[in-house]
Design a protein around this nucleic acid. Structure first.
Lengths: 344, 344
DNA sequence: TTGAAAGCGCTAACAG
DNA sequence: CTGTTAGCGCTTTCAA
């Protein structure tokens, strides 16, 4: 209920004008301010507990910074309600927020919302830039282009060549994962993934899966690809289905760890031993992969690094305006743990 | 690079004043605006793609809303860098953000930062309210009181009776967990937790642990309480220490699931079978608890509900100003899974 | 070395 | 029913 201290209060207290206060606060060396004034203003700020109002600042002379960036996070695929059930996003956000904070930016988060465009959120809040994770077919990206706001897309496909991107070579990674299984002697490798149509990431991992099969002269069999949702529940379901279907599957590639762990669980509940009877490889390397039993062999995509890279790229784009479009592919590797067995 | 459409543009386009536009936009029924004007203004907004600038709005006549709330999340205890390693926060945030978004509020997140007070972030951004999770001894809470901003504390102890609080009866919950083990016939129950001094939650769970021992006439033994950090790594370490120390422990109560799962892992790596040789009970019921092997018996604290309750309380406090201070305790219960064995 | 004043986009008295 | 206007807190040109 306290009236906040404004620059005006500081000015009056010091006996100078608001302009002068503003100068010293912003370190405008161009304007030559005397030592003594600077000290007096500083003292007054301390004294009065002055905290600048960033909304006001971002308003004054247009094109001023707000020091606010947005991160838009996907919802789970089946609804609007949750976004962080997959710890992937938590790990990502953790690093991204840290980078932003250290450079003096605050972070606004938002789930995707059908009723509110990216443009809307960016404009309303005067965001300096925005990170968009994943991409949906109905996203209106072009209006963002029009806005001229620094944007970094993460794990997004099919958005043309306009925006900065950070991502993974998902096709190659999918290939690697599948090949790893094949090289271990498996011939019947099932795929468990999210909606391939909806999500570029899953689609390309799927293509990579096919690449590997083809390379090994193994016929693609649609009956052993399970396409559902990226969550633990669906993993369990898929695991059970695979067992019930009894189509000779000896290994499965799940396109997300959270899915892979579910598959393991589902199979274990059916009395299957992993990796003795069925091998599983995941994708992401969330910390969960090292925790579960057996620990999960998976494609590590350095989530934390992805988060920090995304934010660094965004802040770069914000601070030195004329950067050319950049693409960064974060390399992946396979972490061998205990969920895959060599056969034959 | 595009100049944004302002209310003035809309006014000129429609041929009315900015005030009129503002009225129709804000549905000021008090001012009687003609149907036709309303329609024309609306049409112009669509046409020009007008998006209001919320910073400007929050500036005008003081005490105006910003429709922005903050959530401050703790760092892990050993450093400043991460905050979401524990999926607890992700689940919490997921629900809280959802509630806020549906009611038209954006969410600013921030890790705690020694260099920036709560007051600072709240004032700079003109937040309408703020959620603070956990509390640290060096937090300066009183200055917030002074600000008169709606605040909801979550899982915070020792902050006096001024703020709204959502929390758990941690002492009772700690008692329950320990008693559960004791009732199963265990006599040597180790405790693994975070820094008790630092974190009220852990402290009260610790006291609850002692309560249960006392009730069962079991002597408290300092040598089997392991006090470290709330993370998986420390859990592993503690698990191994317990085995190495060989002090006759048959069960352990870990004050966070992420810790409990680590303890299991550490012990399993030492060749211990769980629950056959040692029983474990956790705390939180993050989804991980149902995923790990064996699945974890734990104290469920309904994280999602906590997140939504916190946000609802905050928004209530923001929207109908004169609410009295409220305290909500989210009840806990024990989820029985497979990590505890009855002995004797 | 400093200050007056205009303006950023929006809201709300107060007049018409 | 609608417009004029002052002002929110801050930055910055221009003048002193």
């Amino acid at each position: 209920v306290k009236k906040r201290t404004t620059i005006k209060d500081v000015a009056e207290y010091t006996g100078v004008s608001t302009a002068t206060v503003s100068y010293v606060l912003n370190g405008k060396v161009s304007e030559n301010i005397s030592e003594s004034t600077i000290n007096r203003v500083m003292a007054a700020c301390k004294q009065l507990n002055y905290i600048p109002n960033l909304s006001a600042r971002s308003l004054s002379l247009s094109s001023k910074r707000s020091n606010l960036v947005g991160i838009v996070i996907p919802q789970t695929e089946d609804g609007e309600e949750f976004m962080f059930d997959n710890p992937y996003y938590g790990e990502f956000l953790s690093r991204a927020e840290y980078i932003a904070r250290k450079k003096g930016y605050d972070v606004l988060i938002s789930g995707r919302d059908a009723n509110r465009s990216y443009l809307n959120i960016a404009t309303q809040r005067g965001l300096d830039g925005i990170v968009i994770i994943g991409i949906y077919p109905d996203d209106n990206i072009s209006e963002l282009k029009y806005l001229g706001l620094p944007i970094v897309m993460c794990d997004s496909y099919g958005i043309g060549s306009y925006f900065n991107c950070v991502g993974t070579n998902d096709r190659y990674a999918g290939y690697m994962a599948t090949k790893y299984l094949l090289d271990k002697g498996h011939k019947r490798v099932a795929l468990v993934s999210g909606q391939e149509k909806v999500d570029g990431v899953n689609y390309y991992r799927f293509i990579g899966y096919k690449d590997a099969l083809e390379e090994h002269n193994i016929e693609f069999d649609e009956r052993i690809v399970y396409e559902g949702y990226i969550d633990h529940k669906y993993g369990i379901e898929a695991g059970k289905k695979i067992i019930d279907a009894n189509l000779g599957v000896t290994a499965v590639f799940a396109t997300a760890d959270i899915l892979a762990v579910g598959v393991m669980k589902g199979m274990q509940e059916e009395g299957i031993k992993i990796p003795e009877e069925i091998s599983i490889i995941g994708f992401d390397d969330i910390y969960l992969a090292s925790i579960c039993t057996p620990s999960l062999t998976t494609v590590r995509q350095h989530i934390g690094e992805k988060g920090s890279t995304v934010m660094e790229l965004l802040l770069d784009a914000i601070e030195d305006e004329p950067t050319s479009k950049r693409d960064i592919i974060i390399p992946v590797d396979i972490v061998e743990r205990n969920s895959v067995k060599e056969i034959k």
